[in-house]
């Protein structure tokens, strides 16, 4: 481990990072206030999300100038992942009213960003090959898309539950969020987008590991495969048996939980060295 890599891994967060943290917090709070009935604040809340997104992007860019690649480690990838999630949320909210979803997604983005920047850097392999970088980039992108699909599925489940149980006085009902059919369809499309990316990432990962000569018996490898199997199964049952709605949403969330577990194990392993 050279001193250079030590320095690279422990680049301090930029001012933009702190702006993003404050904007994420404010956006989450504003979205909660909007949910509480102050609908006039909706544009302000979305503007705050936009600000968080821009600041977050600026932070990633700034790290780039310090030679910290967004896909050079799991820690960096987490920051990129939450950036993708926020961007996806912004994109979706141009079409639908996703106040409830935003109130759920913003804290997730915030936590991911903080974890990515403020956890101890630990030690990382210095010789990150191009193959490794592509693997991490694609895996992050794939998981980011799955994360968005999962967020939509989670909103679907909450809204569906309120509607089915006729909880007409709950927030989920009053918020008049995106219609169920649209949530279901959008989530499905996102999985179609994320699945091939994730598949390639998985294959490259396997090649990378075998090139490094490491053994395949670490728990994250089968878990990553489990994620892949979940989503593959989802696409099959949806296409062949017409599964949709509740069951599809649950399967989406299950797949994402497995993906999160993989990320978590990676992170712990890196921090532990």
């Amino acid at each position: 481990m050279t001193t250079t890599s030590e320095r690279l891994l422990s680049v301090a967060p930029s001012p933009a990072f702190w702006v993003a943290v404050i904007a994420y917090t404010a956006a989450a709070a504003a979205l909660l206030v909007v949910l509480g009935g102050h609908t006039k604040l909706r544009p302000l809340a979305l503007a705050l999300v936009g600000l968080a997104f821009v600041a977050h992007g600026a932070d990633i860019g700034w790290r780039g100038t310090q030679h910290v690649h967004p896909a050079q480690s799991v820690r960096e990838a987490l920051g990129l992942l939450s950036f993708i999630i926020t961007g996806g949320y912004l994109l979706a909210s141009t079409r639908y009213r996703l106040t409830l979803g935003g109130a759920a997604v913003m804290p997730v983005s915030l936590v991911l960003l903080v974890v990515a920047r403020l956890t101890p850097a630990g030690t990382a392999p210095e010789d990150l090959s191009t193959l490794g970088r592509i693997h991490i980039s694609l895996a992050t992108l794939g998981v980011g898309v799955f994360a968005l699909a999962s967020a939509l599925s989670a909103i679907y489940l909450v809204e569906e539950r309120a509607l089915r149980r006729k909880r007409f006085d709950t927030l989920a009902f009053k918020d008049k969020g995106a219609p169920l059919e649209a949530l279901d369809r959008l989530s499905h499309r996102l999985i179609w987008v994320g699945f091939p990316i994730f598949t390639v990432a998985l294959v490259l990962g396997a090649i990378w590991v075998s090139k490094l000569g490491e053994s395949l018996d670490r728990p994250e490898y089968p878990l990553a495969a489990v994620t892949w199997i979940f989503y593959a199964a989802l696409l099959v049952v949806r296409q062949v048996y017409g599964w949709r709605g509740r069951r599809a949403a649950r399967l989406t969330l299950a797949g994402f939980a497995a993906a999160l577990l993989v990320l978590f194990i990676y992170l712990v392993r890196r921090m532990a060295g």
Binding site: L163, A178, P179, L180
Partner: peptide
Amino acid sequence: LAKRVFGN
């Protein structure tokens, strides 16, 4: 209620 499910 129908719009909750189908949007439009």
